[in-house]
Design a protein around this nucleic acid. Structure first.
Lengths: 122, 122, 122, 122
DNA sequence: GTGGTCTAGACCACT
DNA sequence: GTGGTCTAGACCACT
């Protein structure tokens, strides 16, 4: 379910935050659902709990989650707008990626094949 | 020609290095061509010369370029294999991006539209 | 243990890198051992931390070591091939040195005495 | 006759200077012999004439050669002491090289073979 | 003018 | 405390 790329130059806390946003967008975590505990995720990824904490702080700042003292972090309600904004960002970033490929003369056909393969595997 | 994304979490030196690799792959810089000088690029991007130097050091380590003392940095010959490897990496990273979009239920149609738009603009 | 020759025309960062390679080859540092921290070595040699960092960057590029964020630099596994390659280089460089001496008419006997002395002192 | 290692981290002007010293020590250039012209060597090594000039300046400073205005550079007389000093330095540097090899557990036998080979080829 | 190396100092991410 | 990145500034070797 989680998919943290440690080879990325993204800071680990951002990798985690972005991952959780995707799980919220695709409905894995619904409004008012409890998110995994800091301890659980820090064990899962073999990283320090402060790093997971920082990821949750980031999500709280961005308006995705809220804490309940002593209980954990929970998904906020009415985040459709945030989700749409996030999708828009991901599509823009996708478009940049496609432009990159076009600039180095990758054929459109090669791109279509990759996209078709992924969507037919679903 | 250059396209440095300062909003990226990539270190600036990697943004520069990756940018130059793309310009080598698409043939803007041919084998034995002289690359822009460290001082020129540091002025162009308003960054410290050591950062550009680090980018060129990275490209040298990866086998893309070589220095001539007092003359500048030049593109190596016989880098077809490096270029292919780099293209392969970019396509893999593209596939990951598409998988991300599929996981958050972006419709294939939306993706196809973006790709079509970019390739028809070319 | 460390033996940095500041009189050498080698850049300081290479002196450090080469020194550490020798300590890896002779087994002082084993795979997955933690290397001295950048700050420790920069204090030890009274040089700037960036210079030690550059030495470690060099070793990382050459495939000898890897970093763990917040923990330090560690010796890689499966570096036998690298070690053999490095030994080969040192023996080639040694052969060049001997040729130099032969060319200026140093007697073989003088060379043998030096070699014998060093190996009997071990 | 000349043997300039451009891969060395030695500055090129020092490589040239050291090379000429060896040619003086082994008698290729005798006292009062004229050394090759700056123009000749800069063509031979495909380098700028200033670099050769710098090498000759170095040799002049070290007491090996003297200039005659409009005629060129010549080997000094009575440089036996300098030659001995230089030989001593080369032997010390050779001894360091051997110590290096001993420290990385190169067998004495391997060293002896290299030395024997080079001296029997002479 | 061009790259190579180094210092002093700063701030960030992660432990 | 540990590595990673960056700035500002300096001096060197080579053209």
């Amino acid at each position: 379910m989680f998919n943290i790329d440690t080879k990325s130059t993204n800071p680990v806390y951002l990798e985690i935050a972005n991952n959780i946003i995707k799980l919220i967008i695709n409905g894995t975590y619904q409004p008012n659902d409890k998110l995994p505990s800091i301890r659980y995720l820090s064990n899962l990824f073999s990283i320090n709990h402060n790093t997971v904490n920082r990821a949750y702080l980031e999500l709280e700042h961005r308006g995705y989650i809220y804490p309940i003292q002593g209980k954990g972090m929970f998904v906020k309600e009415n985040i459709e707008e945030l989700n749409d904004e996030e999708k828009r960002k991901l599509l823009l970033s996708f478009a940049d990626k496609v432009k990159e490929l076009a600039e180095i003369s990758i054929e459109k056909q090669e791109i279509d094949e990759i996209v078709n393969k992924i969507y037919s595997d679903k």
